[in-house]
């Protein structure tokens, strides 16, 4: 919530912009994920990229509908680690999904409109489902997260 504890359309819009920025990064990052996977194993990466593009476009439309200027994609991004194998690719996808999850949770905390919270909780769940698949591919244990997007207590 805002530092003064007041939630309003301004806090919600700012949080929507943070989600949009995370979605831009995810769309870009999934390109790297797909490129590091064998051709016959790229379907999940393609599906993930399409999903994030769709959400990005929905967010842009939502922000424009309320008179805000949607944030644009950064001119460049740095990867958190080299992506040289299929396991690296899966690990990167986990990072991407967990990144957008944190942004969606932030939006839930800041939102004032139930419709925005419905959007957020739905997409947060979708991100966690994708993350489960990628954690499995990356050999992570456990493959699930009890509280996706929430900072550790």
């Amino acid at each position: 919530m805002a530092d003064d504890g007041v939630l309003d359309e301004g806090t919600e819009t700012a949080a929507l912009q943070e989600v949009l920025a995370a979605e831009h990064a995810a769309v870009w990052g999934y390109g790297t994920v797909g490129a590091a996977l064998p051709l016959d194993a790229r379907e999940p990466a393609v599906a993930g990229e399409v999903a994030h593009r769709d959400v990005r476009d929905r967010l842009v439309a939502l922000l424009e509908s309320r008179g805000a200027d949607p944030v644009t994609r950064e001119p460049g991004y740095t990867l958190p680690f080299p992506v040289l194998s299929a396991v690296d690719a899966a690990a990167l996808a986990v990072v991407l999904e967990e990144g957008v999850s944190a942004a969606w949770v932030r939006l839930l905390d800041q939102a004032t409109e139930p419709a925005v919270r419905e959007l957020a909780v739905g997409e947060l769940g979708a991100a966690e489902v994708r993350a489960v698949g990628w954690r499995t591919a990356a050999g992570r244990t456990p493959v699930t997260d009890a509280l996706p997007g929430l900072p550790q207590a």
Partner: peptide, 11 residues
């Protein structure tokens, strides 16, 4: 509370 419930639902 919304953030917590949303996170639990997603989990």
């Amino acid at each position: 509370r919304a953030a917590l419930l949303g996170s639990v639902a997603a989990g």
